[in-house]
């Protein structure tokens, strides 16, 4: 058994969190509330020491007054507490939305559309061995069929009847096989996390595993 009080605290809080798996109980409730408080406190410290210091204190101490502009814009958020001027907080929100949305249009068109189209094209090596299960022409065609049918599943402005119904059904098969693959993969990866925590309890705390 460890004699370090901090290790005991860590172990008991880990168990407090785990206790939720049985059911909600006072110990979990305490841990959960403490977790919220501490993590927000931690965020405040990070913001203060990193951002406030780097982007406000340093520039002002170096008399780079331009930093007052974003500060003033940020402070408009605080008008939330002034009932008559509440609408001023929409200005920083509008700035944030404008910048991100303007920028996202071409970025997404490049990353999600062009790159995916490029990836879907059959390549010339596929012709050499058409039946190769990994890189043959048949597989290449199967990928194109899968992509096209999946895209058609998302066609909203027409009733899914006739050929569109067939295509969208094939599309959802592909989607489900893909989700199964991703599910299986993640399940295996997450197991290692649990093993890590159990190892801590048994090695650091009660020294069962050496």
């Amino acid at each position: 058994m460890s004699t370090d009080i901090w290790v005991w605290i860590a172990a008991l809080l880990s168990l407090a969190i785990f206790s939720y798996l049985y059911k909600d109980n006072p110990v979990f409730r305490f841990a959960e509330h403490l977790f919220t408080g501490l993590s927000v406190g931690y965020m405040i410290v990070l913001m203060w020491n990193n951002y406030a210091y780097q982007y406000i204190v340093i520039p002002i101490s170096q008399q780079r007054w331009i930093t007052l502009i974003p500060m003033a814009l940020g402070m408009l958020y605080l008008f939330r507490f002034v009932p008559k001027l509440q609408h001023l907080m929409l200005i920083p929100i509008a700035i944030t939305l404008g910048i991100w949305n303007g920028w996202s249009i071409p970025v997404v068109i490049e990353a999600d559309l062009f790159k995916q189209m490029q990836g879907t094209m059959v390549n010339t090596t596929m012709f050499q061995n058409p039946w190769d299960p990994h890189n043959g022409l048949v597989v290449g065609l199967l990928v194109v069929v899968g992509v096209v049918c999946t895209v058609l599943y998302f066609y909203f402005s027409r009733e899914h009847r006739g050929p569109l119904k067939v295509a969208s059904s094939v599309g959802i098969w592909f989607v489900m096989i893909g989700f199964g693959a991703s599910f299986g993969y993640t399940v295996m990866a997450r197991m290692s996390l649990l093993i890590g925590r159990i190892q801590f309890l048994f090695t650091e705390w009660i020294h069962l595993i050496k």
């Binding site: 969190i17 939720y20 059911k23 909600d24 979990f28 409730r29 841990a31 959960e32 509330h33 977790f35 919220t36 501490l38 993590s39 927000v40 931690y42 965020m43």
Partner: peptide, 19 residues
């Protein structure tokens, strides 16, 4: 507002869902 921490948020929402 709950918290910035991913898992802190998850535990908080878990609490809300059960209570």
């Amino acid at each position: 507002y709950l918290t910035d921490s991913q898992m802190g948020f998850a535990s908080g929402v878990d609490g809300i869902m059960t209570r």
